[in-house]
Design a protein around this nucleic acid. Structure first.
Lengths: 207, 207, 207, 207
DNA sequence: GATGAATGAGGGTTCATTCAT
DNA sequence: AATGAATGAACCCTCATTCAT
């Protein structure tokens, strides 16, 4: 009954974000011009400026929207005690959050040089830094810290490369299955960080 | 014995590469203009075109020069049998090679969107892919493959982030020490891939 | 009597004029955008177009309102005989009128290039021309005319520069006092125009 | 003799300045676009940027070139003792310098709002301020100062308006003749500043 | 071995203005 | 009485690249 086929108050703003996100992901932030975005939407460049103050502002809005799950995760983690179990859970949730917020983080990942001096770049990097900080919270011993770092690197960069250079194509299973398998490895690495066994940095046989 | 007139043949080409490398690393490939490079060198833009065909060609030359150690590593690995010990050694050497070729790989890492459709981008990515492929050579079981992937991710991305978002500042030791510690963790993860113990992907407690 | 509902008829039009005037004076006509005016008022650009037909129309209304004293002065002078005493009085009154209508004339003064082809620019210039014409009315001799010109220039441009480049900061007195002092000099110059003494243009010692 | 019809090293830079000056004078600085300048010259906008860093830089070069006579005048005056005769001579020379540098000062005069926040605007204003300062040097008494101010205003603004609103068209003589006549009036006003007679500001009959 | 001069294409951004609601 | 949305034209500026000298 009465689906409004055309929202009264224009939905252009959201359409811009959606289109821009697609283009930023596929061509890169810098290489996507406002003209391209506008043309893809069938509006004028000036229309973009009615809805957003600058090009960066478009990415900023995208970052805010898609980054929310990670922000909430950070907020959650900040209220937990920094126990091994909290970290295991944080890693699990981060892996899941990343999977859903993939596009924005891919933009950060693939346009670091460009985003370096943009405020939105800082926003994005800050989230990653916060996760990393929380994963290391309270850890003192160097060997242990490196295991944590390895676990975070595995989950974070694994997310971007599940279908890329690092996991050969013949790889079996869906992206989701592979994500979980990789998370499993990361959790395993993490376990080693908090078990009494000597950390590998001190083990004699790796040098 | 005397100045070798041959050796004095303009070193401009090398100076261009050096300066360009510095700027590509610090500002990014796209955001570094030929004007900047020329000005930093005290020559004209046109001079750059005397020595290189295009902007991309400059990066290409850099990539060839700095990528050689990794190329040699790949060539070496391709002649070894794909044993666990070969892979351990490959990972060790890759970690070392990365440390010395850091600048080029950082350029790849931070300008992926820009380099995506450039030939030089492919060159750079191919090296990474080759290492990854060799590390996975002969592996069949999924759980095992993921451990390998994790180890490679740890070594590869650890190299870029030893002083960044993923390893908190208070981290002790020099960059070199941290690299080795991280390599230790990666080797440890790798060990799990080839030991008889059940791989974590199959363990019941991670879901 | 109560609240006169008539009187409450939106005062927006006047608020627009007032705000626009302030901005035109402080940033210049060209460099003040309708967006700025609208934002300063807390309304939309479209609202401005409800009250005024164009941007120029806003300045036009301002010009009409603030220019009235000068218009009346011109009307008055046109009915006087062109005697020296009339001119003295005209100069006095012009000096006073300028002081109160300063903002509009400052806009004319500082945006001549922009207002050159606008109708409102002509309106504004016409007032100045009329004053000048009336001051010269009936004068025939060149030397005399130049004294009049100097007197008008002194009063007119003195008004804009009482606190600017032409009167050093250490200058004593209020702006009002300085205006009167300058008017005094102008009147003095004017006196020379109608006294029997030889006008300086003919004097032998200035060449 | 061999007049080189085409200078070897392109004279484009000077042609740009010349064309820009014309357009700045006739349309105003803001309203003259780089496209216009380029088209008038038969070159591309980019060519302008080869010769000048910015639009402002073009005006800056013009200002430096045309402003030189005034700069030299200021330098000269700064080495003279601040006697009445020095000031008379300064006024004479300023009148002459203005006549030759007219175009630039007209640009300043007619685009004040635009040039307000530009560095080149300051350059231009500084010259005027310097002349005014030197004309007032050593003067203490208010009435005297106002005569000086009037003299400077007359010479300075007279230069812009010899053919404009302030001197009616029917005015006899060439622009040069009128300039000298006006200078005569200004010198006369100046004389009053340094004669023993009471200054008009104190005279009882002007209020 | 290098320069000076120039170009064409495109960048992001701002503006006064319009119009249906 | 006023708004939200949009436009078209123009803006200044930067870029990689070319070519005669």
């Amino acid at each position: 009954m009465g689906s409004t086929p055309q929202a009264r108050r224009s939905d252009t703003r959201e359409r811009i974000q959606k289109t821009a996100l697609d283009l930023f992901v596929s061509h890169g932030y810098e290489k996507t011009s406002l003209r391209e975005i506008a043309e893809a939407l069938g509006v004028t460049k000036a229309a973009l400026y009615y809805h957003f103050k600058t090009k960066e502002d478009i990415l900023s809005a995208i970052s805010r929207d898609l980054g929310r799950p990670v922000d909430e995760l950070i907020a959650w983690a900040e209220e937990q005690p920094p126990t091994p179990e909290t970290k295991r859970e944080l890693l699990r949730r981060y892996s899941a959050a990343l999977a859903s917020a993939m596009p924005v983080y891919r933009i950060l990942q693939e346009n670091q040089a460009t985003l370096r001096d943009l405020a939105v770049g800082r926003e994005l990097r800050d989230r990653v830094t916060a996760i990393s900080r929380l994963m290391h919270a309270g850890d003192l011993e160097s060997g242990c810290r490196m295991r944590v770092t390895s676990a975070v690197l595995t989950v974070h960069f694994g997310a971007f490369t599940l279908d890329g250079a690092f996991t050969p194509d013949e790889e079996a299973g869906t992206a989701e299955q592979r994500r979980e398998a990789l998370l499993g490895v990361a959790l395993d690495t993490l376990s080693g960080a908090y078990s009494p066994a000597p950390t590998p940095a001190l083990a004699p046989d790796h040098a």
